[in-house]
Nucleic acid binder design. Structure first.
Lengths: 305, 305
DNA sequence: TGTTATTGATACAAAAAAGGTATTAATGAT
DNA sequence: ATCATTAATACCTTTTTTGTATCAATAACA
């Protein structure tokens, strides 16, 4: 069976294309190196180098194997480091799902706080819609998810980690900008850019329910998924939109924001969710960090740049 | 440094959670297995198992390392297999130059036979004129070339892979279409579409030499490079042309073809060419396949669609 | 509570593998 | 034709791994 030492020998020779220099680099002499390479070649049962007594070149098979050998050694080092870090309780890898909206404000903060508190930890981030995150939690592809509230509490633990006000986004100079605070009833009949009912189900439902309760019927001119696209249309004067506060970070020119005066205005909530059975020691740590962010956020509102 | 053998030992113990059973599975005795695991633990510098003298359990670090160890061994096996496959020519990349005319008939057959015989192989096709292919073979940019005979036999290996008759292409209703077989002498003074002397040097020289020997002087009204363009002009009634049999595949409407009665009529030959020093294991295989196509072709002439 | 059976660790000798030195064989350069 | 370079081979030494015998710890059971 192939040993990693042979991989190291092979990589050295492949990089130097010279047995003597390679041996020097490996702190050994040339003959045993030659034999290690021969051994390797008999084990995988194919020539890796073409040697004339004057030069050494990689075969096609050798090139392929060089790639793989490098990758394998890299993986081995990572595995080693990961195991040690875990044993020191210091870190490890946390696979974390997130939804596109999260990326605006919450995620950057989470990442930087994670780095500060647990320097050796790795957040393995994967963007996926809330529902997909749930299945990934089940299959073990994710350790935690950052998603909108739609979770079956029997199987999952969750904590609220972000709670943002919704704001009115209007093009500069729009009549609704005259007031310092927006009023919901003013949206009645106004050209309005709405969330897609499938792709952005959470925001769609949130707004639809709230508008219906307020008996306000804006004139929906477009349905979109990406908040960024919505703001572009707002800027173009297609209509107004209601977006979470963190959308300000996108910093779209010529778009202004107004808070709603009405204190009953809905919040967009974000939860961190994980399976109770998942033993990853980073989970309680990241949950703490994420919860701490909620408190920070409530005292320090988003400012436009 | 960690050796793959230690990974195998570790996986066995992690799966059996029992040193004796694991040792049995590894065809060894328990004491050396214990020491291998200890060695592994000192090398990655963390405990992988919690052993009471009665039971063995994985630590968190051990669980992480088990995942990685399995993945690494799997990768190693795949790497081994991939390298061997390439060396056997069961997979890999063959960079193959071809001339535009080749693409009509020969190349599609070659590609489909390659796919059938060596499913994992990739033909990396690059269209270039014969001369350019030669320089590309020298520089190592190509493994094989499909080109017209103009090769210095000292540096290259070559094999004939295609041999086609030239045919007369005429617009429907042209007087020369009256006969079932064309005669070269009938071309004397006839409006004729000729090959470009530079870009289509091979066909140009072939025809020029042959016509001169027959003392036939057609009236050359146009010089072109692309056979397809020539046939378009034939169709438009600009003149007649002499094209390789495989041009029929282009299936230009209102153009008819006549074989030459004269058995001495020239052939258009195609060779597969490679450098003897090129070790790509796919070369002998593709050469075989290409040669086999010649035999097929000689018994099965091109039919118009 | 004492005995036994089970199980991983340790000690030491034997075997295998890897490494080192000296030399050979092949070949490009002079 | 000779020399220099370079990978392979032969042979010996050192290191590593393995196996046998045994120990130490402990759970099971009488």
């Amino acid at each position: 069976m192939i040993e990693t030492n042979q991989l190291r020998c092979f990589i050295a020779v492949a990089e130097e294309l010279h047995f003597n220099r390679a041996a020097l680099r490996l702190n050994m002499t040339q003959p045993p190196l030659s034999r290690q390479i021969q051994l390797l070649e008999t084990r995988i049962d194919c020539k890796l180098f073409i040697r004339t007594s004057r030069s050494v070149v990689l075969t096609e098979a050798g090139k392929s194997f060089l790639n793989d050998a490098r990758r394998i050694l890299r993986l081995l080092e990572n595995a080693q480091k990961a195991a040690k870090d875990i044993s020191l309780g210091r870190s490890g890898i946390l696979r974390c799902g997130f939804t596109a909206v999260t990326a605006n404000k919450f995620l950057p903060q989470l990442i930087s706080n994670m780095k500060a508190d647990i320097p050796n930890s790795t957040l393995d981030l994967k963007e996926m819609v809330s529902l997909r995150q749930i299945t990934a939690l089940d299959s073990g592809d994710l350790d935690v998810g950052l998603l909108r509230p739609l979770v079956d509490p029997r199987k999952y633990q969750d904590r609220l980690v972000s709670r943002e006000r919704l704001m009115l986004a209007i093009p500069a100079g729009h009549p609704l900008g005259a007031r310092e605070f927006a009023r919901w009833r003013d949206l009645d009949g106004v050209d309005f850019i709405m969330y897609d009912s499938v792709e952005s189900k959470y925001f769609h439902d949130l707004l639809t329910v709230f508008l219906a309760r307020k008996h306000v019927r804006p004139n929906i001119v477009q349905r979109l998924t990406q908040i960024h696209s919505m703001l572009s249309l707002v800027r173009a004067g297609v209509g107004v939109a209601v977006v979470p506060e963190s959308a300000r970070i996108l910093d779209v020119a010529d778009v202004e924001y107004r808070e709603f005066a009405d204190q009953s205005s809905p919040y967009a909530e974000l939860f961190i969710v994980w399976r109770e059975t998942n033993q990853n020691p980073l989970i309680p740590i990241v949950v703490d960090i994420a919860e701490a962010l909620l408190e920070q956020a409530s005292t320090q509102p988003v400012q436009p740049r």
